[in-house]
Design a protein around this nucleic acid. Structure first.
Length: 563
RNA sequence: CGGGGCGUAGCGCAGCCUGGUAGCGCGCCUGCUUUGGGAGCAGGAUGUCGGAGGUUCAAAUCCUCUCGCCCCGACCA
């Protein structure tokens, strides 16, 4: 394609509203424009990238036997009411009424719709398994759209759904998606991890996310290099390091700690590190007050606790006094009969905690001796902790969620009556899985992971073009050679952009680096006099001086080898 | 939804505190020169100062309301 006839509005300066690198570069390089918060227009270059990503996704989905379909983005309410999500989901769903005053919504995802289809059409075990997918627009009224294309209110998603006879079938479909996803993200040139994730409101037996590490990511993941443990911090477990010193010599005694309430204050006052303390938090759950117990150096993970006890809230200052008869700073796990959920970090050791007595702390508290509790992992993972599987060192990284996979089981097939008849004529619910990929997030993650001060450095597989031809001057011989290189490469099936604009060389160089096409063939007057052109690799900046036919050969054989 | 910031020319910004005929850089248009890393000179065009209401002789500037965008947090099916 010709630059002069392509809409590529590059920007010299960074628009004020952009913060994330991928956002800045996509705007500056003329890939996208913003319509409103969380709504983006994809310009020619941007759309070419999305298209190439989608092509890779389609190839790999088709390769595991998935069949492409397309479903409406506008849904009737009844079907969402049938699974209960119409009322469970709050303001994040775009809702509207049609002219007949019927409730409708814009699809955030398509479990309901595809299950409806399955319920209508799948009768027999002979119809199974099936995997259906689409690449289609989703709508979510995000509380806070952010970081350009990373979190938007309308976005493209590849969503596939597997239908199997039983759990074992689901396991196989799930594994096929795992394999396909690994191929897709690798082919897109991303660095990524597969991590355990919280199934959340999708329900079901298990879930993983595919995470592209990047400081711009919204998620935090925990990784163990020794055994490969990998999990989102929303559910990641860890083994906190043991107390530095043994204090089994401590006897149980109350020590006056006037006006010392926080762990920090008491720790300093008694000259004992935070690991020797138990923080006792008074919470109000569905069945009344209870205590959450956690080591002084650890933090309570509210989501983990939520999964154990259901909903809860912090007790008010006054409530605490009514329940325990003591001020918040002096609460301990012993001397009371409240229900206790304790973190595994305090299972062993000897501790200091509030004495349940104004102005005192108790030293020498032994878990399971001086109090009993339900033991769970309810702390937030810290980098100093140990791997829960192998005890090795762990790392914590920020990451962009580019894909997710869920084992749904029968959560949708039962309410929507997607049943089939098995060999024995029994009616059985279809066992389902659901699998998503965000093409725009792949593009953004690729930029976050591949850029320099001059601009984007696309992985070859998803670049908007393979090569950019840069005639540096307007001379006829320069233009003729450039045109020849352009048409030859194009005729060989290489995607070429030729910068035929009447602008200065500097502008072309700057724009070429910004836009980030993997290879540049630069044709200048002086080098051409020596019969040479330059082949520049965007990533390394390496320049080779070659004859134009050598350059053509080099590029076309490189891309042919790639396939 | 809670906290913070910002809306002035296509883009980046100054002006606002202390009211008095709206500015700078880049871009854009014309001409000449220049031509391998966002050219130089000369000339030129461009604004409902986000919107509404109020105070005032006079509002970009002060007051009230409102809309939008960004960031942090909560949320994220």
């Amino acid at each position: 394609m010709r630059f002069s006839k392509t809409f590529i509005p590059t920007l010299r300066e960074t628009p004020a509203e952009a913060e994330a690198i991928s956002h800045i570069l996509m705007l500056r390089a003329g890939y996208i424009r913003q319509l409103a918060a969380g709504l983006y227009i994809y310009l020619p270059l941007g759309w070419r990238v999305i298209d190439r990503i989608n092509r890779i996704i389609r190839q790999e989905m088709d390769a595991i036997g998935a069949q492409e379909i397309t479903m409406p983005a506008l849904h009737p309410a009844e079907i969402w009411q049938a699974t209960g999500r119409w009322s469970e989901i709050g303001e994040e769903m775009f809702r509207l009424k049609d002219r007949g005053r019927r409730d409708m919504c814009l699809g955030m995802t398509h479990e309901e719709i595809i299950t409806w289809l399955a319920s209508m059409e799948i009768r027999s075990y002979r119809d199974l398994p099936q995997v259906w997918y689409q690449i289609q627009t989703k709508f979510r009224d995000e509380a806070r759209p952010k970081s350009g294309v990373l979190r938007t209110r309308e976005f493209l998603m590849k969503d596939s759904y597997s239908f199997d006879r039983d759990e074992q079938g689901l396991e196989e479909s799930y594994q096929r998606h795992v394999d396909a996803y690994h191929r897709i993200f690798s082919r897109c040139g991303l660095k990524f991890y597969q991590v355990q994730s919280d199934p959340g409101m999708m329900g079901g037996a298990g879930a993983h996310e595919f995470m592209a590490p990047s400081p711009a990511g919204e998620d935090t993941i925990v990784l163990c290099d020794s055994c490969g443990y990998a999990a989102n911090t929303e559910l990641a477990r860890s083994t906190p390091r043991p107390q530095p010193e043994d204090h089994s010599d401590w006897d149980l005694e109350d020590i006056p700690t006037p006006e010392k309430r926080t762990v920090e204050e008491v720790s300093e006052f008694l000259n004992a590190p935070a690991e020797y303390f138990i923080k006792s938090l008074v919470l109000i759950g569905r069945d009344g007050p209870f205590l959450a117990l956690i080591r002084g150096d650890q933090e309570l993970h509210e989501k983990k606790l939520m999964r154990i006890v259901g909903g809860f809230r912090q007790a008010e200052r006054e409530e605490i006094r009514e329940i325990l008869g003591v001020e918040a700073g002096f609460i301990g796990p012993h001397n009371n009969s409240l229900r206790k959920i304790a973190d595994i970090s305090i299972r062993q050791g000897v501790y200091i905690s509030g004495a349940n007595r104004e102005g005192f702390h108790t030293r020498g508290i032994r878990p399971s001796v001086h109090f009993d509790a339900e033991w769970h992992d309810i702390h937030v993972v810290k980098e100093e902790d140990r791997c829960p599987e192998c005890g090795g060192d762990i790392r914590i990284e920020r990451a962009i969620e580019v894909g997710n996979i869920f084992k749904l089981g029968t959560k949708y097939s039962v309410p929507l009556r997607a049943f089939y008849l098995d060999e024995k004529g029994r009616e059985v619910p279809i066992v389902m899985g659901s699998y998503g990929i965000g093409p725009a997030r792949i593009a953004a993650a690729a930029i976050e992971q591949n850029h320099d001060d001059d601009g984007i450095i696309w992985p070859e597989s998803i670049a908007p073009f393979d090569v950019e031809v840069l005639p540096v001057t307007e001379d006829t011989d320069v233009m003729e050679t450039s045109e020849e290189i352009y048409t030859t490469l194009r005729d060989r099936g290489i995607e070429v952009l030729i910068d035929d604009r009447d602008v200065r060389a500097g502008v072309k160089f700057k724009d070429a680096d910004l836009i980030g096409i993997p290879y540049q063939i630069i044709i200048g007057k002086k080098t051409l006099k020596e019969g040479l052109v330059e082949l520049k690799q965007r990533r390394t900046g390496k320049v080779e001086r070659l004859t134009s036919s050598e350059a053509i050969e080099r590029v076309s054989s490189h891309y042919k080898a790639r396939g």
